[in-house]
Amino acid sequence: MNWLTNFVRPKLRALVARKEAPENLWTKCPKCEQMLFTKDLEANQSVCTHCGHHMRVRPLQRLPHLFDEGKYELHPLPKVPVDPLKFRDMERYDARLKKAQAKGDGATEALVVASGTMGGRLAIVAAMDFGFIGGSMGTAVGEGLVMAAEMAVARKAPLIAISASGGARMQEGILSLMQLTRTTIAVGMVKEAGLPYISVLTDPTTGGVSASFAMLGDIHIAEPDAIIGFAGPRVIESTIRQELPEGFQRSEYLLEHGMVDLVVHRHKLRETLMRLTALLSGPAGAESRALAAPSR
């Protein structure tokens, strides 16, 4: 025993520990920079309680707020070949993938497929996860969307896709690009079956996801102030070498330019989806509603 272990170590530990605790307890709003009590923020669906800024949420935090009584069933994604190209940049892709899956947040890919009732009506939801490798779309995401679409067709339910993605997953090269076509086929099957396909665009939706299924909805709903576009703002700035106008590629800009139907606050998303799916289910919709679980 000496003064080093006794005295210096606990002090060092205290220094490290002091940093961690407030990070979990408080969250800083990236927009208004207000420090928010994390519990309050979560209760508010990650919408800043101070300025109303919609922060990014992961599917498992979002889904309970969409379905009746917060209840839904998760459907595991189909198995796909891991690292088909044996891709390596500064790190091997298979290692990068494993690391992302081992974070302990339960996410295994950038998409979650869920089913459940909304206002007593069955709906299939495919929600992307920006927290998983930037929500990038590779074969697994594409395959998951195909599964969700097939499920919607088989169960005669509307499909709701919630996008949050930087684009295609580069480490899967051309196979990630092919997901643009594959997901377009997926939503095409839903449309062909006469079922509603609603696309919800959240921050951010760019690249391959915006250039495929996200922009092919019967109805497009955007969350407020989300970045939505084909090329990312940095790519555009470096190409044209000029500053981008204020509000460029934000939801409200897209609304103004005719690319989305509605900009809807997160607190109103569930009721908007319920109303739209009911309206689009036509007269036959009343039947399936009666057949679904008893209303609350």
Binding site: S210, A211, S212, F213, M215, F230, P245, F248, Q249
Partner: peptide, 26 residues
Amino acid sequence: GAYPGIDAEARGQAEAVARSIETCLE
């Protein structure tokens, strides 16, 4: 690649590409 510019975004580059893929399939 598709042109990444302000005007292209304003007129819906993403939608135009997506719809073009859809047309190929239809």
